[in-house]
Design a protein around this nucleic acid. Structure first.
Lengths: 202, 202
DNA sequence: TCAATATCGGATCAGTCAATCCATAACTAG
DNA sequence: CTAGTTATGGATTGACTGATCCGATATTGA
């Protein structure tokens, strides 16, 4: 169990937190190693020794995000909640998290990796966030399937259509938050989306 | 009227089209001057003589986008259409444009400038697209106000809430298209959003 | 024909990029 | 103790970044 060699002296959690905040604020591309070094207090050698590359550090930072602030979307997979309640918590919880001023605005996963530059490292960074978006989408879809099974939604509900509506609105929250749309208006919008859910149910 | 000095020999439209496609595909940051030179066939001197900076070129390329593919959102300001029809055309038209395989996926305006790096040029580039997003949002809002005035929507409709719902979904289309969501599912989602519009009306 | 003006291609600039190297330090296993 | 392994700080790498400079060229107005 005890590792061979000189042990790490830096706090992995603190480093990932600092890197996450930087990537969140500026995006993968715009964040330089020099900034990451300053924010984490580590040297290039330590950074590359621990993460292998800028892309590797981004991956770990995204995992840290998903386990932290990004975990607000996990409620949608909670089968103890009714499907409607799960979607409601997903939307309102995401709005609350993204408008929280104690960290950068919007969602790291929603805003990263939406361009397709030919660069080497960028492809990997894009894959990490795209995978999380796909996972969120799949969980929303499963929630809607549950809603049909439980009778909350009509039998003939277009599953992928409603999924795209919910997921599309969820993704759009990030850009709106970036542009300064208030939490109040977004919560009202989420309620409007949920009213739609109710309308589908009869 | 006739300008003094050696006249330009390059085709401004063709250059803006090439630059637009590159920025659209890769984003502002990830697109290098070397790529822009190759795509446009111009030298650095010509590029800087005509546009002043990479940021200036981006601004003109965005204007070219807005006048071209991006003009699909203009229908929402067409007062000859009923508000509901205007929103319907806005959403379905945007989906058709963004999933058109003859150009990069998604919307240049929706996907650019959502991060806040401290770089000099980036701030200006961000402003251009943010201004367009704000304009789109204002036009959607005006359309909803019209809908209330015409009786399509209830008197007590939450204007900013419905605006955020429509605009949020519109912005979310781009990320979904980037991730490969099919046009069929997105059109179904747009119909679901519009069903919500109808529900608000009674 | 002769300034004045502006664009052209191509070379070039200082600065920054992500990544690597090296000598040293700190640990474990035998 | 020694040998092997890994982390650390700091200097350094070649490649690329956006931007500028230069001499040559093409046009207008006098």
């Amino acid at each position: 169990m005890s590792p061979v060699g000189r042990p790490r002296i830096f706090d992995m959690e603190a480093v990932l937190e600092a890197a996450m905040l930087l990537f969140w604020e500026q995006g993968y591309e715009a964040t330089s190693l020099a900034q990451l070094r300053e924010a984490t207090g580590l040297s290039s050698a330590s950074l590359y020794g621990a993460f292998g590359s800028k892309e590797g550090l981004f991956e770990k930072a995204v995992e840290h995000y998903i386990a932290g602030p990004g975990s607000v979307t996990d409620v949608v997979a909670d089968e103890a909640e009714s499907p409607r309640e799960a979607i409601a918590r997903l939307l309102h919880g995401s709005i609350n998290m993204q408008t929280d001023t104690s960290h950068p605005r919007g969602c790291l996963v929603a805003l990263s990796g939406t361009t397709r530059a030919p660069g080497a490292g960028q492809a990997g960074a894009r894959k990490v966030v795209a995978a999380r978006r796909a996972a969120d989408r799949a969980r929303i879809r499963a929630c809607i399937v549950r809603g049909i099974a439980s009778g909350e939604l009509a039998e003939d509900t277009d599953v992928d259509g409603v999924t795209s509506m919910i997921h599309g609105f969820l993704l759009g929250i990030s850009t709106q938050v970036c542009d300064g749309t208030s939490a109040r208006h977004l919560h009202a919008a989420a309620d409007a989306v949920l009213a739609n859910w109710d309308a589908q149910g009869r």
